[in-house]
Amino acid sequence: MKKAILLESVSKKYEVGSSSLEVIKSLTFDVNENEFVCIVGPSGCGKTTLLRLVSGLEPPTSGRILIFGDPPDPRKQRFGVIFQEDSLLPWRTVIGNVKFGLELQGYKESEHEKIARTYIELVGLQGFENYYPHQISGGMKKRVAIARALAINPDLILMDEPFADLDAQTRSLMQRELLNIWSKLNKTVLFITHNVEEAVFLAQRVFVLTKRPSRVKQIINIDLPYPRARLSPPFISYRERILTAFHEELEGI
């Protein structure tokens, strides 16, 4: 079976003036289909760069990336990307935003309305279809972004610290709903975070990255059934293991 995501000694260098900055160095990992993987690492370690490479926004300097066997290209594959920042188009209503991906992916116009409403319902925003982004809360905006990403029936869901800006309560609510949706839809999820607890709560496997230039420091399988209790001893022990690895990296900075 082809891996959903496969990275083979991927490196990324940026030329900054005369010097070059190596953000990622011979990074190798893979993600199985329908798997939920979290990537944690110290800030500035190139997590966002990694996401840009996987979604095909930028090519790697060396090595290769395969998405179901093909190099990433948003025009050929379907990526549902959810950003940390607000990525809603402020001039479009909730439903207009959800339709945006459908328009760009070339869905038939007659289908837009029905598909959009289905996913708005899935994220629990029915009744808010005609609201503009500035009229809804931060959590609701994230739901719209998720609905928009899911509406195109993506091959891969890529999330870049999507809940970092939310308050603690909303964040944990969103985490639970994300797991619900994931179990319903059976999608492959690559979720980037610097919040270790979030990673343990969500992921089947957690990849800990080193500081820049990033490599995989450790891969940890979380063998806990969903839904997970955050205060259960095994949860805490997983969290401690990852935190230890994480802190080794932080101290090096």
Binding site: L57, F83, E85, D86, F100, I152
Partner: peptide, 27 residues
């Protein structure tokens, strides 16, 4: 124009023409 919006459109497979018409211009 927010860079996030442009990247968002790119991840949906938008080409430059579509990014200009649907993101940069309305923004």
């Amino acid at each position: 124009t927010s860079i996030t919006l442009i990247q968002m459109a790119k991840t949906f497979g938008a080409d430059n023409k579509k990014i200009i018409a649907r993101v940069i211009f309305p923004s």
